[in-house]
């Protein structure tokens, strides 16, 4: 059964203390309370989460795929922005 008028929500889960909330998917719910409940039921069944954010999908402003050349292409040639030119002393080990 499709219910086209039900609001779409994006779900973000923080899996451990100290980590950031990470987008895990979306779901339908009529309001914020039910969206949180549904997020718990759909996305944390296997112990994935310590904290949930739900955000109305229409509150997210997204970049236009058609703009991707202008938005992202210029960064491709700027290899000097990567911190790969430093010599890491042996004693520091893995960073």
């Amino acid at each position: 059964m499709t219910v086209p008028t039900i609001q779409l929500w994006e779900v973000f889960i923080r899996s451990r203390n100290g980590l950031a909330h990470r987008h895990v998917g979306s779901l339908h719910a009529t309001d914020a309370t039910l969206a949180l409940q549904a997020a718990r039921d759909v996305y944390t069944r296997r112990g994935e989460g310590l904290s949930i954010w739900v955000v109305p999908s229409n509150a997210i402003v997204a970049s236009d795929p058609a703009d991707k050349d202008m938005m992202f292409e210029p960064a491709m040639s700027k290899i000097y922005r990567h911190p790969t030119f430093y010599e890491v002393p042996e004693e520091v080990g893995h960073m």
């Binding site: 059964m1 549904a38 759909v42």
Partner: peptide, 12 residues
Amino acid sequence: APMLEEEMALAN
């Protein structure tokens, strides 16, 4: 169930 979200909730 009437929607996927409740399908999961009821089974849980």
